[in-house]
Amino acid sequence: MIEVRNLTKIYGHHHAVDNISFKVEDGEVLGFLGPNGAGKTTTMNILTGYISATSGQALIDGVDILDDPEGVKKKIGYLPEFPPVYSEMTVSEYLDTVCKLKKIKESERKKTMEAVMEVTRIADMRGRLIANLSKGYKQRVGLAQALVGDPKILILDEPTVGLDPKQIIEIRSLIKGLGKKHTIILSSHVLAEVSAVCERIIIINKGKLVADDTPDNLSRQLQGANRLQIRIAAPEKQAIKIIRDIPGIVNVQFQGSREAGTSDLVVETGADLDVRKTVFNGVARSGYPLLMMRPLDMSLEEIFLKVTHLDKEV
């Protein structure tokens, strides 16, 4: 379990992380979301013991990393923003060094190396110099490094940066698989990734925690208004008029006409008001056929923009 209490990191006058608290239960996959410079990397660096907090605590299984640095660090596998690989080593030399640094017993070293190379699919590259690997492979070597010693907790800082789409899907499914056995914190500014992989999302902006919930709840909470997308087989002016006459409609937007002789509209209603029936009846009464009606959920992108703009606790 990871517990962060009132964590603050100040550089000069700049609050990189400002009084953040959250908990991550065992086996949970937590997404850490925020624009560039929000404090994601700083928080992760504090959790892994690379830097220290100005104030506040980071507890791993109830133990402060400052009280037992070696013990706590053994439980954490960390993939930093830039994979910490030595370019003058080959992949297997590097992983061997990592095994020794993480104090893996000599009898288990070979097995460990094979296992992490297998999982991250870099076994073919074992004899290659890391300097000659592509960005994607370096990233995988970095991930393999984090997996050495099978740590309980994995902290991954933007694990899919620089990978091609196929590799991204592979790494995501890999992380999902790892999530069954490990506690994972994953940072990203790619929202699709977080919603695909994580059960819970924390959004931070300018060092402050602005949201902490499941992706579904976030999207529900933030939706101030219900929105429907509809298509009516009527010209623009008529279509707008028909909708305006329906009670409960707050806003109508014309979105163009995708099929000849039809109009696409986005209809907004007040909060907690289901107008699907009244819309259907209203359109039916007008005599123009209703071709499509679909509720619009707020996408994670929209949530993200809204939250980071509002800059307030949700």
């Binding site: 013991g49 070696e70 830039f82 640094l101």
Partner: peptide
């Protein structure tokens, strides 16, 4: 410079 110190400092080594 290459940030490989992150590996050393986050490993269980003093």
């Amino acid at each position: 410079r290459t940030k490989t110190d992150q590996l050393l400092l986050t490993s269980p080594v003093k």
